[in-house]
Design a binder for these strands. Structure first.
Lengths: 213, 213
DNA sequence: CCGCATCCCATGTGATACTG
DNA sequence: CAGTATCACATGGGATGCGG
């Protein structure tokens, strides 16, 4: 059970001893979106074996990265304050890995929590501050995200609601975020389907959210 | 040989598929300091089995993170431009892991490359810019680092030379970087030994390099 | 049902030895 | 010096079971 060690007195090795095991960082990624139950984590990580999930949850608790939410009737896992400090790591990993994402394969899913963190990664706080407050609903296969941008603040939650623009898309969202697919073309080619609201707001979306490819 | 996949269309998972295997990020860490030969990498990662090192080097080449340096007579590994973009990830990991570093154990070593990256992590560019150019030699067990700070620029290399301040220390350098041990106390208690130059420059060192604990 | 625990097998890892 | 080869073992993956 003792985490395998690297035998070095170094911050990077220490970090990897805590969250470097397979699946661990993905549990952290999903918990960065919000507290989650065991089943919710399992649903967000479709290919994780249940014994591994249970083991990781135990290890991450032991080393102070996550905890069971106190005074909650049901069992809910959440990040500790120290665990929440992993956000810069996850964002940096996401930005780097984004550039290596090819086209999606059949066996790859887009989960709501992964997409939420991707939007946080792509969020341009400085640019958003110059734009009027805007809310979006983005349908991405399974994920249905309510995205509210207000100045430098970003809030992403699940669900639907009254928003300025609602649109549906698929994995093409990657090209939209990287700028390889213009909002106009995305609409005319059908890569993005406008559900409600003026389609021109999609351009504002792409200015608010951008990731280099 | 095909990297184990997570089955998600997501930047974080893609990144972990490329550099999430055990030891991979540490190879990247050391190559961020500079190109290295096979034997140098093995020396910087004392506990890595040779077959694992060989395997990782092959995988990292295949996925475009590292390469054998071209037109070099001997075999030298270096990061590709894309691999070099992992620096923010390694720095973020190092900063986070630093907070979880306890006191060093007998079986833990401090390697020159790990220490170099730790200094890069701790470097306060903005503060350094306000201070006069200063060069240091830091002896840390095996590691003997020549640290040159000139405005916002930092250069760390191995070796010795004429510098403003030369000092020797051990794992206590962690307390020095976190501010839990003041430069004065470090000198009076012998945690830091001044070899050459005025000891008061150690205070400038700690202002230039700082990591939150 | 939810939150795991158990079992079994495939694969990855680690230590050591060895080679071009 | 820069890796392979080999083998024992730990970990991961997938299916299944099971108590609260």
């Amino acid at each position: 059970m003792a985490a395998r060690e690297y035998g070095q007195y170094c911050g990077v090795t220490r970090a990897l001893e805590l969250v470097g095991e397979r699946w661990a960082m993905l549990i952290v990624r999903d918990l960065l979106v919000g507290p989650r139950r065991y089943g919710e984590l399992a649903a967000g990580l479709p290919r994780i074996p249940s014994n591994i999930l249970a083991t990781r949850l135990k290890e991450l608790q032991e080393c102070g990265v996550i905890r069971r939410a106190p005074r909650s009737r049901v069992i809910v896992y959440e990040l500790t304050p120290y665990g929440r400090e992993l956000e810069p790591v996850v964002l940096a990993l996401g930005a780097w890995g984004f550039k290596a994402m090819g086209d999606p394969r059949e066996d790859q899913v887009i989960t709501p929590d992964a997409m939420t963190m991707a939007l946080r990664t792509a969020f341009r706080e400085d640019i958003a501050s110059t734009l009027p407050a805007t809310s979006y609903v983005a349908h991405l296969g399974l994920a249905e995200l309510l995205v509210r941008v207000d100045g430098p603040r970003l809030d992403v939650s699940r669900g639907d609601g009254p928003v300025d623009l609602a649109f549906a898309t698929g994995p093409e969202v990657r090209l939209l975020l990287s700028g390889d697919l213009s909002p106009e073309r995305a609409i005319t080619t059908g890569a993005v389907e406008i559900l409600r609201g003026p389609g021109r707001l999609l351009e504002r979306f792409t200015r608010t959210f951008h990731l280099a490819a």
